[in-house]
């Protein structure tokens, strides 16, 4: 009896699997391994030497005694906490506002707030360069309003909150649309009849928001919070631009992720071993939060069942 075979799933998965293997798994192992070697200046021959936990020792030493590195830690904490608040609460407020107002205006605002997400990093950086640098928009407006008497270099001179505010502001603008959109579609997904019933029962807008919309979208709130927390810990492209272009002071604009990048690729230091050690810490946190996200997202439901046996 002939036993015909349908193309196995492997055929469909092969390309993606290959790329994931070469560009995720192997690099990850390399990075983890590099943190145990003395590799510097991309002299990859040094990957053959083993130095044990030396790099981790150096790293913790730097955190404790190098004021710049401890500033990086502080910046990371402030940045993540601040931007997370902006992203979640701001996203919630935007979604609520977009949900309440009339459809066309809502659409306009949703698109407008989505714009930063779709803008190339270099352009977005440029926008805020024009905005924040001493001769830029912000100072011009403040001077007009006589709130300041001479231009202020907010990102460089007003430490630490000047640069911290700027990085939170810029990343907040990019990140807030995520929450906005998730919450907005969650509100939309609540059956209209529930709103109607509540309205008939005499509920006012406040009641709708606090007794119906927010309780029913509780899981979305938790999910967005965890997911954004993870994203903020690992994002660095916008920060890279702001720091490199001098919009913000180097150490007060640098989070842990950017510190990893600058340590590995920066023009001053080129210490891949140290960078890898710092990256490994990030990986551990990332995996933890990633597993948490998986539990939160109702994975089994998302997975869906396979029907038929073909």
């Amino acid at each position: 009896m002939p036993r015909p075979r349908l193309p196995p799933p492997a055929l469909f998965l092969s390309l993606a699997a290959f790329l994931v293997l070469v560009f995720y798994m192997v690099p990850l192992i390399l990075t983890l391994w590099a943190s145990l070697t003395p590799v510097r200046n991309w002299d990859i021959a040094q990957l053959r030497q083993f130095v044990g936990a030396e790099n981790y020792r150096r790293l913790f030493h730097l955190i404790r005694f190098d004021p710049d590195v401890s500033t990086v830690v502080k910046t990371t904490i402030v940045f993540v906490a601040g931007t997370l608040t902006v992203n979640v609460l701001g996203g919630l407020l935007l979604a609520l506002a977009a949900f309440i107002i009339e459809e066309r205006a809502s659409l306009g605002f949703r698109l407008l707030w989505f714009l930063p997400r779709m803008t190339p990093v270099a352009v977005f950086g440029l926008l805020w360069y024009y905005f924040f640098y001493p001769q830029g928009t912000l100072n011009a407006i403040l001077l007009k309003l006589h709130l300041i008497s001479h231009p202020v270099n907010w990102g460089q001179d007003v430490l630490p909150w000047g640069p911290w505010s700027i990085i939170i502001f810029v990343n907040g603008l990019v990140g807030v649309s995520y929450g906005m959109i998730i919450f907005y579609s969650a509100f939309k997904a609540i059956p209209k009849d529930i709103y109607r019933a509540a309205l008939v029962d005499g509920a006012r807008l406040r009641d709708l928001v606090f007794r119906i919309m927010l309780p029913l979208t509780r899981w979305h709130l938790i999910f967005v919070t965890v997911w954004q927390l993870l994203s903020l810990l690992t994002t660095y492209a916008h920060l890279f631009v702001l720091v490199e272009w001098g919009v913000v002071e180097k150490w007060h604009g640098m989070t842990w992720a950017l510190y990893v990048f600058e340590t590995a690729f920066g023009s001053a230091v080129n210490d891949q071993a140290l960078a890898s050690a710092a990256a490994t810490l990030l990986v551990v946190v990332g995996i933890g939060l990633g597993l948490l996200t998986l539990r939160l997202m109702g994975f089994e439901r998302e997975l869906g069942a396979i029907r038929g046996e073909l």
């Binding site: 995720y24 690099p27 993870l230 810990l233 690992t234 992720a257 990048f261 990030l282 990986v283």
Partner: peptide, 13 residues
Amino acid sequence: AFPGVALIIGVYA
């Protein structure tokens, strides 16, 4: 969810 910055070192290597 993976930190991209952790990968880029290996990718560059």
